Simulated scan of single mutants.
Amino acid sequence: MGIIGSTIKPFKATAFQSGKDFFDVTEEDVKGKWAVFFFYPADFTFVCPTELEDLGKQYDALQGMGVEVYAVSTDTQFSHKAWHDTSEKIGKLKYPFLGDQLHTLSNNFGVLREEMGLADRATFVVDPDGVIQVMEITCEGVGRNAEELVRKIKAAQYVRNNPGQVCPAAWEEGGETLSPSLDLVGKL
């Protein structure tokens, strides 16, 4: 599936966010800013709270980079609230959780496990034009690393803001970049 470089499809999902009433989020709310869609299989599970807590530790840094985070599972917004209210790890989180019980987002991003009605463990980074720039999908037993996600977003933002430049492997902010040209062919 060629999802990198594609534009996110229309959606409407109800969100739970600590300290707020339930509210709707659509693709229009995402346009004009960077966004992370952080899919996970289900509330009240095992690896998921560790990942979501790890992501929560990076939330302020991501906000400072102009990035909004949306945690997404096929649970309802009511389940998200109940999990928030009963889990020490989830109770600390500030970013919105989207309910995807109709599987619209999971289908739009191609991560629905239809036989189970659950989303894969998947991350998508969307640029301000609504274009998917980064994706990562892992098996259910392998948790993701939020620090690496932040690094990838910094690289994607750098490439967007510096046309003609690309970031090599393990690039860190402030590191050397490359200017692709015929002069580099066979020299790297």
Rank of each mutant, 00 (worst) to 15 (best):
M1A: 11
I3K: 00
I3D: 03
I4G: 06
S6A: 06
S6M: 05
K9Q: 12
F11P: 07
F11V: 02
K12C: 13
T14Y: 06
T14F: 02
G19F: 02
F23E: 10
F23R: 11
D24Y: 03
V25G: 00
E27C: 06
E27R: 05
V30S: 08
V30G: 13
W34P: 09
W34R: 10
A35P: 11
F38H: 09
P41N: 08
F44M: 02
T45G: 03
T45R: 04
F46G: 07
C48Q: 00
T50P: 01
E51M: 12
L55P: 12
L55A: 08
G56N: 03
G56P: 08
Q58T: 11
D60K: 15
Q63P: 01
Q63V: 06
G64R: 14
M65H: 12
M65C: 05
M65V: 14
V67K: 07
V67M: 07
Y70G: 03
V72E: 09
D75I: 00
D75L: 04
Q77Y: 01
F78P: 01
F78I: 00
S79C: 11
K81P: 00
H84V: 00
S87F: 04
E88W: 09
G91A: 11
L93R: 10
L93D: 08
Y95M: 11
P96I: 10
P96Y: 12
F97D: 08
L98V: 10
G99H: 01
Q101I: 02
T104E: 01
N108E: 03
F109Y: 12
V111I: 06
R113H: 02
R113W: 04
R113G: 04
E114S: 15
E114R: 04
M116H: 11
G117F: 03
A119Y: 07
A122D: 01
F124C: 09
F124M: 02
V125A: 01
P128Y: 06
I132E: 13
I132P: 06
Q133C: 10
Q133D: 07
Q133K: 14
E136P: 10
I137M: 04
T138N: 09
T138H: 13
C139Q: 14
E140K: 06
G141K: 05
G141P: 00
V142A: 10
R144P: 15
E147Y: 00
L149Q: 03
L149G: 12
V150W: 10
K152R: 15
K154E: 15
K154Y: 14
V159N: 05
P163I: 11
Q165T: 07
C167I: 05
C167T: 15
P168W: 13
P168H: 09
P168Q: 12
A170F: 15
E173P: 14
E176P: 04
T177F: 02
L178Y: 02
S179A: 03
L182F: 07
D183R: 13
L184M: 14
V185W: 07
V185I: 15
G186Y: 14
G186H: 12
